[in-house]
């Protein structure tokens, strides 16, 4: 691609990543959550691939994305197991004052970040998983096409 496309996409990568992280971390307060935020972050990777093409180390990057995909899913399941003292997927952190544990009363409020119990942690795990899964899929297809063309 041309120098303009490369420069603009290099500048835009950081805001896109930060917006994706914002959508993930505010998933229990505003529209969004792990799935849309992870998709936004994967879009940044797609833009980088489209602008800069593939490099020699992309096979290892695909393996790293695959590893992060597994880590995200395992963290999600582990957070489900945390609630096992009552039931699977029980929200044990909500309203107990520890991390993300402020209690909320019914009704509209301006939105407090330290609420939600296990929900923000699960959102983050799912966000990592979606980001890594979509990036790994794109990298796998692109690497395959490059091998066929060479």
């Amino acid at each position: 691609m041309s120098a303009i496309v490369k420069t603009v996409s290099a500048f835009m990568t950081v805001p896109m990543m930060i917006f994706g992280l914002y959508v993930i971390l505010h998933g229990h307060l505003t529209p969004g959550g792990g799935f849309p935020g992870g998709a936004v972050m994967a879009t940044a990777v797609a833009m980088l691939i489209a602008a800069f093409g593939l490099s020699q180390s992309d096979a290892r990057k695909k393996d790293a994305f695959s590893l992060f995909e597994s880590i995200g899913l395992l963290a999600f399941i582990a957070m489900a197991f945390v609630g096992l003292q009552s039931t699977f997927f029980a929200n044990v952190l909500a309203g107990h004052g520890w991390i993300f544990g402020s209690s909320v009363s019914y009704g509209p409020n301006p939105g407090y970040l330290e609420t939600g119990g296990v929900i923000p942690i699960m959102n983050f795990a799912v966000g990592i998983e979606v980001f890594a899964a979509l990036s790994a899929v794109m990298l796998a297809i692109m690497l395959h096409r490059r091998e066929k063309h060479d």
Partner: peptide
């Protein structure tokens, strides 16, 4: 009761990750 039980302002997220967690799994 989503706000008092799960602490999440976003009811959809509360359903997705708490009431119907198996769906999300």
């Amino acid at each position: 009761s989503s706000q008092e039980e799960t602490g999440a302002n976003n009811v959809v997220t509360g359903i997705l990750f708490d009431y119907r967690g198996f769906d999300t799994l």
